[in-house]
Amino acid sequence: MAELRKLGRPTAHRKAMLRNQVSSLFEHGKIETTVTRAKETKRMADKMITLGKRGDLHARRQALAYIYNENIVKKLFDEIAPNYSDRKGGYTRIVRIGPRNGDGAEMAIIELL
């Protein structure tokens, strides 16, 4: 399995943060975050969209185990995933937007294609 970035967070905090970012991405279509967080969010978002493309009950339950908001999972399976039915992968795009003013961290926008 690929190496997971730790993002300077304890495990529980990191998992919760990534779940929230994936949920926000599906809810709003794009989010602004740091580049390393965007890369990890992209990995999980692509996995969730792949589950949405499968569309069966088991896939829906797997998605609900990761994304706790039922409305977002419904949107994922009914609206987002069908848009990518003919696409093999790469459902998200990361666009670098330069350093953050406060601490100089490299920022990016992650968006659904």
Rank of each mutant, 00 (worst) to 15 (best):
R61T: 14
K15R: 14
G104Q: 05
A59F: 05
N69Q: 09
T34H: 13
E106I: 09
D103G: 04
T36S: 15
S24V: 10
D46R: 08
L7E: 10
E3L: 13
R37H: 08
V35K: 03
G55V: 11
L112M: 06
A63D: 03
R9A: 02
I67W: 06
R60H: 12
A2M: 07
M17C: 05
I49K: 04
L113E: 07
H58P: 12
G89H: 01
V73D: 00
I97Q: 02
R96H: 07
I49S: 03
G90E: 02
T33F: 03
Y68L: 06
Q21H: 15
V95Y: 00
T92D: 04
E106T: 10
H28Y: 14
V35W: 00
M48V: 14
I109V: 13
N20E: 11
H13L: 12
T36H: 14
R93A: 00
M44V: 13
R87L: 03
A63T: 07
H13I: 13
L57H: 15
A81Y: 00
K75T: 06
G29L: 06
E27H: 13
S24Y: 05
Y66I: 15
H13W: 10
L25F: 12
A105C: 04
N83M: 07
R54M: 13
P10M: 09
D56A: 12
G102T: 05
T11F: 04
K53D: 11
R19M: 14
Y91C: 01
K47M: 11
D46F: 04
L113D: 05
G55C: 09
L25G: 12
I31V: 12
M17E: 09
D103A: 02
V73K: 00
V35T: 11
R96D: 06
R100Y: 00
R87E: 03
R54H: 13
R100T: 04
K75V: 03
G29D: 08
L76K: 03
N20I: 07
G55R: 09
P10G: 06
F77V: 08
E111I: 00
A105K: 06
A2I: 10
